[in-house]
């Protein structure tokens, strides 16, 4: 564990806490893409298949349980909670996210570390996480102004993988034979997808104005 990876994990945890805070305090999921949340639930379930078979550390196990349970709880809230579900922007959240699932599944079958069920699922989850934010970014562009908590949620979610890139660079220089091309390339693509959001988020912060993404 290094400071970059710990900062990344904490930033990721903060993004989830901000989203839970928004849904719990406002009892609303307006501006939140259910499709992105479903993709994240798939990402965590397919990535943490080793939750019960390989024990890395208490921290690792606890964080995996937190990520899986929070992503499933958020999907349940938006789909089933009698108050929250009413504010879901169903007509705006129309990204065909199952196409992303299909494309990542094909890519994982072709490019993986080892051809085993667990490794292919792991590669699939890495690829899917890189594109999972797309439905959310599309929804933000369509829904015009973005409420503060939703903007902060997306900001921390994008920032966490940037810390992971620093972690991979650090590990590359500090450990022999450390190469994780699948994670690195996918992580760079993932962070790049946030580039325009980060730009408009910075502008809104600098001008102290509402976050507006151009349609």
């Amino acid at each position: 564990m290094n400071v970059f990876r710990f900062a990344g994990d904490m930033t990721h945890l903060i993004s989830i806490l901000v989203l839970l805070l928004k849904i719990y305090t406002t009892k609303s999921c307006s501006g939140i893409s259910l499709k992105t949340q479903e993709l994240y639930a798939v990402v965590f379930v397919t990535r943490y298949l080793d939750l019960v078979t390989d024990f890395i550390s208490v921290y690792n196990t606890v964080m995996k349980v937190v990520f899986i349970s929070s992503s499933l709880a958020i999907v349940w809230c938006i789909r089933r909670h009698k108050v929250v579900r009413r504010s879901y922007d169903k007509e705006l959240d129309t990204f065909r996210h199952w196409l992303l699932v299909g494309a990542c599944a094909v890519l994982a079958l072709v490019v993986h570390e080892k051809f085993s069920f667990q490794e292919v699922c792991w590669a699939f989850s890495i690829y899917l996480e890189a594109v999972a934010i797309l439905p959310q970014l599309v929804l933000l562009q369509r829904s015009g102004n973005v409420d503060n908590l939703t903007g902060q949620y997306v900001f921390f979610l994008g920032a966490y993988r940037a810390f992971y890139i620093l972690n991979w660079i650090y590990r590359y220089y500090s450990e022999q034979h450390f190469t994780r091309w699948i994670s690195c390339v996918s992580g760079i693509v993932q962070t790049a997808l946030y580039a325009d959001f980060f730009y408009y988020y910075f502008i809104s912060w600098k001008n102290n104005s509402k976050l507006q993404l151009p349609a």
């Binding site: 990876r5 994990d9 990721h12 990535r47 080793d50 390989d54 890395i56 690792n60 964080m63 995996k64 990520f67 570390e113 080892k114 051809f115 085993s116 490794e119 792991w122 992971y164 972690n167 994780r180 994670s183």
Partner: peptide, 10 residues
């Protein structure tokens, strides 16, 4: 195929 590395990252 090469042994896949331990997935110690989240």
């Amino acid at each position: 195929s090469s042994a896949a590395y331990i997935k110690d990252e989240l």
